[in-house]
């Protein structure tokens, strides 16, 4: 399904965010990527749909080499990958409906996009998806009128509307309170099984990762240092992922304690 091979990213500043990371995701599994801040988690996610350009290595989705594409073919490939953002990535001044329908932007003409004149199937799917994420009736509200949890669900609905082959999720819960975080995680795993697509989640809270993920990957300093089931994540592997002092503190944080909202992703 998704094959990442020896993916590296060095930023112009000389910061080596990713060092030859290889991994695979398949079926409808939920894969959690854990690691301290600055370990390269966000860079990894963004390199997969090439919002960030990897320095070397390949990404192959369903037989298509994403890293070899450019222009309209890259955009077509991006339609297959739904992305969900830490800061939601909603357009505040647009309505919920416009935000959700924007998941179809890769499929409509410029003129249709301008007129907000999306095909009937897309509109129906948008209504249905809003209902599914528990936001039925919110379509005419402006995105900035919603609460954090609601905003994240709009972000999820937008990603679903792409009818993607995979979901890329970047720190979905770090701006949310513990309870809302669980709702969002439940929704994501539910989508994975219902749609039969894999979900790749960057996540800070180990507790949530252990509870909801089928498999966990640990990144430390841009390197993949752990891979296994939640049960296999023992103290030894935790030490491996969170080596330094600052990170040790993070490993203690449980899902009952929300992470700092101001936490900056590694990109």
């Amino acid at each position: 399904m998704l094959h990442v091979t020896e993916l590296s990213k060095t930023y112009p500043t000389g910061d080596e965010a990713l060092k030859e990371v290889s991994m695979e995701v398949d079926g409808d599994e939920t894969l959690a990527i854990i690691g301290p801040s600055g370990a390269g988690k966000s860079t990894l996610i963004a390199c997969i749909n090439r919002l960030v350009e990897p320095t070397s290595g390949t990404v192959v989705l369903d037989g298509t080499e994403i890293t070899a594409l450019s222009g309209s073919r890259l955009r077509a490939a991006r339609r297959e990958m739904g992305m969900i953002f830490q800061e939601y990535g909603l357009v505040d001044r647009l309505t919920v409906m416009e935000n959700v329908l924007s998941g179809r932007l890769g499929y409509v003409s410029n003129w249709q996009a301008f007129r907000r004149n999306f095909p009937a199937d897309d509109v129906r799917m948008a209504y249905e998806t809003l209902d599914r994420v528990g936001l039925g009736g919110f379509e005419d509200q402006r995105a900035d009128e919603l609460s954090g949890g609601q905003r994240q669900r709009v972000g999820i609905a937008r990603a679903i509307l792409q009818q993607p082959k995979i979901l890329l999720v970047d720190e979905p819960t770090s701006s949310l309170d513990p309870e809302t975080s669980r709702t969002v995680m439940e929704l994501l795993t539910e989508i994975a099984s219902e749609e039969g697509i894999p979900v790749l989640i960057n996540i800070h809270e180990i507790g949530l990762a252990v509870e909801y993920a089928d498999r966990i990957v640990g990144l430390a300093d841009g390197r993949l240092v752990f891979e296994g089931s939640p049960a296999e994540l023992d103290e030894g592997s935790m030490d491996l992922i969170y080596r330094d002092g600052e990170a040790a503190e993070e490993s203690e944080s449980t899902p009952d304690r929300p992470e700092a909202v101001g936490d900056v992703p590694s990109t």
Partner: peptide, 28 residues
């Protein structure tokens, strides 16, 4: 805010529609 612009790019939208949905509503 650059995040919505990234989000629009991530949907596979082209440069025009990225601007139309990601930038125009922010500055209009």
């Amino acid at each position: 805010d650059p995040v919505p612009v990234r989000a629009m790019r991530a949907t596979g939208a082209n440069a025009f529609t990225v601007a139309l949905y990601g930038i125009v509503p922010q500055v209009k």
